[in-house]
């Protein structure tokens, strides 16, 4: 008996569907069926943040998220933030602050930073450290990441101010 089922969801703004097995994780389905390279399975235990995806506006570890649970949702990844022509201010801030080296963890850090700044437009150092505690950078660019988040916050806030 096959347990395969068709799931439908919105991926980075476009409606998609695919057949999945119950045991398939969202990270595997995004990478293998939809060629989404911005979600990466690293620790596989929800600790490192490399597989961060946004499901219905909420950040999840897609390595611990059954693909079938994405049925009927809107899934966004780093590919939906900015474009190659126009980066998101958070992406620009990470580049300017030199907050990456190999880049493997960067999509997760940037997506979590966006969530953080949506909740705390002016985060304290403690807010940033706490919110990003579940994201690991093996190049250890943490001081630069902290600076990038603060730079991104300043940019977003000045852009939000009336002219």
């Amino acid at each position: 008996m096959s347990n395969t089922r068709t799931i439908r969801f919105t991926l980075n703004g476009a409606p998609v569907k695919t057949d999945v097995e119950p045991h398939e994780t969202l990270v595997d389905v995004l990478r293998q069926r939809f060629n989404i390279g911005g979600v990466r399975e690293s620790c596989g235990q929800g600790l490192c943040g490399c597989c961060t995806a946004i499901v219905d506006g909420i950040a999840v570890s897609s390595c611990l998220f059954l693909a079938m649970f994405a049925d009927g949702t809107a899934v966004d990844t780093i590919e939906h933030l900015g474009s190659s022509h126009r980066l998101d201010p958070i992406q620009e801030a990470f580049i300017e602050a030199g907050a990456l080296q190999c880049g493997f963890c960067t999509p997760g850090f940037i997506l979590m930073t966006k969530q953080l700044l949506d909740i705390h437009p002016v985060p304290s150092d403690d807010d940033i450290r706490h919110y990003l505690a579940g994201n690991l950078c093996r190049c250890s660019a943490y001081p630069e990441i902290l600076a990038a988040v603060k730079l991104a916050a300043r940019r977003r806030n000045s852009a939000a101010e009336p002219a």
């Binding site: 929800g46 600790l47 943040g49 961060t52 909420i58 950040a59 999840v60 570890s61 611990l64 998220f65 979590m112 969530q115 706490h130 919110y131 505690a133 579940g134 994201n135």
Partner: peptide
Amino acid sequence: MRTLANPRVRNV
């Protein structure tokens, strides 16, 4: 809550 896992796990 602040000592449990991380924000993504707490979301789920």
